[in-house]
Amino acid sequence: MVPLVKRQTRKGKHPMSEQKIIEIEVLRYKPESDQAPHSEVYKVPFTDDMSVLQGVQYIKDNFDGSLTFRWSCRMAICGSCGMMINGIPKLSCESFLRDYYPNRITVEALANFPIEKDLVVDLSGFIEKLEAIQPYIIPKEPRTLEQGEYIQTPEQFSQYIQFTSCINCTLCYAACPQVGLNPDFIGPAAMALLHRYNMDSRDGGQAQRMELVASEEGVYNCSAVGYCSEVCPKHVDPGNAVNVNKINAAKDYFLRFLSPKGGAQ
């Protein structure tokens, strides 16, 4: 009972009139009518437990129902609520308004993607890249049911587990200037997923995937900025996947005449 009494007294000391208000500047874009995006500022009342996503939801519910953004799980696992918050790619559900108050915060659609509307970006290019890496196990040789399951040791598992943690939030693409400069670049998350399969002991598809890795859309577009791995909310380290594959692609480039096992032409 004691804690309850304490909480009541604390509540008494902070009446509703002390409601904090934060300014949220949102980059708006209406494809039907706007030539280019423009900023609008909203004064949003908030409590300490409110995320930036909740702030944006408050705007939609109270100021402008046309404000468009993606969200789903509110717990940093669905990967849909990524936004540029003060210019930094973040999941808006795990960024808190209290950490920015009393300054104004700016919210913008993820960088390096075309803006579809307001905070929603066009992900079709990214989806094509995910498809292009052949994101499934390509068995080394055909295997019958009678042969039973694949056996994998913890050590083999540890080779790729990190790269399975990607939630496709695309913050790494928003962090990568090379993606912005060349939208055809396969990019960090797709390379992390590619590496995840290449490193899987059950997979034999590395040579097939090499065509893409070693191509002009491949890993050599990366100049090791490294910000992709910095902003990754799941510590996938996609930048390392890209860079390790530069070494793999270089080996393939110079040794392809010795072992004619595929790769790009």
Binding site: E211, L212, A214, S215, E216, E217, G218, Y220, A249, A250, Y253, F254, G263, A264, Q265
Partner: peptide, 8 residues
Amino acid sequence: TRKRSNAP
């Protein structure tokens, strides 16, 4: 079909 990069 993709063109192999000479970047290596």
